[in-house]
């Protein structure tokens, strides 16, 4: 197990890549052990906003000296982060959570499904999957609101990319499930991150198709390390921490096999 650490790191670069979507590279030693699907806790400097913002790792630089995060400005904390510029410091803790099981895809045909701000972790995952399966097996299906897409040009380097937009301005009109339907795509395994209705639909689809689906969940967090029990999800089996069918998203997750978690009621 790698040691978790809270540290003050340095912003290398930041830009807005779509409305309210920011793309930031951070120079940090935490990149050395970062896995696809893991996340960072990012701490605002404004002391009125104390709690960390959990943000998924989008990409790990080849030299393992920098991490990329792509996030949406959703409130005061992320608004503060969006003002950071190159050379500014940023307080982060990481690397947290379990990450996606990359080896499970060995030689298999997979879907990487991302919805909105759930798309970023799919980039590092797609990169990592190239080591265990052929590029043509990596089908990246991403859903956006409209034609103001992001990360598309990065994703196409590591897999076959299919797009859905809610307004139909680019790609399939609708959501990621509509892409599978319209194109008749097939896979042996799914990885997904996105809004809860999307994850619920993927869970149903995977159960019907009888294939595993590894979904990344989010929840409000306080500690980020498994101590506060703030970010739990109901589980099918007894959890090993509290023995009550409540797994900690920050620690046992954020990635769960869809059948293990009770989502969507």
């Amino acid at each position: 197990m790698t040691m978790k650490q809270k540290q003050t790191a340095t912003v290398i670069f930041q830009q807005e890549i779509a409305p309210a979507i920011y793309d930031m590279w951070i120079g940090t030693s935490l990149a050395q052990n970062a896995l696809p699907g893991q996340f960072l806790c990012v701490y605002p400097k404004d002391r009125s906003t104390l709690l960390p913002r959990p943000i998924s790792i989008c990409e790990v630089r080849e030299d393992k000296a920098a991490l990329r995060i792509v996030y949406r400005v959703a409130g005061q904390g992320t608004k503060e982060f969006s003002h950071y510029q190159a050379e500014d410091t940023i307080d982060i803790m990481g690397t947290l959570g379990n990450g996606f099981p990359v080896e499970a895809a060995a030689g298999k045909k997979v879907f990487l499904m991302g919805g909105g701000i759930g798309i970023p972790p799919m980039l590092q995952l797609a990169k990592a999957l190239n080591a265990v399966t052929d590029r043509e097996n990596i089908q990246v299906i991403v859903g956006y609101r409209d034609s103001l897409t992001f990360l598309q040009e990065d994703l196409v380097r590591y897999g076959q990319v299919y797009i859905a937009t809610e307004d139909g301005s680019t790609g399939t009109k609708g959501n990621v499930m509509n892409v599978i339907e319209e194109r008749g795509l097939k896979a042996d395994l799914i990885y997904a991150c996105g809004p809860m209705p999307m994850l619920c639909a993927i869970k149903r689809y995977a159960a019907q198709a009888n294939i595993p689906a590894y979904i990344s969940l989010e929840e409000h967090m306080a500690c980020g390390v498994g101590a506060c029990l703030g970010c739990v999800v109901k589980t099918r089996d007894m959890d090993h921490h509290s023995h009550v069918h409540n797994a900690r998203i920050c620690t046992e997750g954020p990635v769960f096999e869809a059948g293990e978690v009770e989502i969507g009621g």
Binding site: E219, H220, C228, L229, G230, S242
Partner: peptide, 19 residues
């Protein structure tokens, strides 16, 4: 064992938090 409350269980407030 106690299962605890439904989520969300935590929220940020000015200079602190609710749990």
């Amino acid at each position: 064992p106690w299962p605890g409350n439904p989520t969300p269980r935590v929220a940020e407030v000015y200079g602190g938090m609710l749990n």
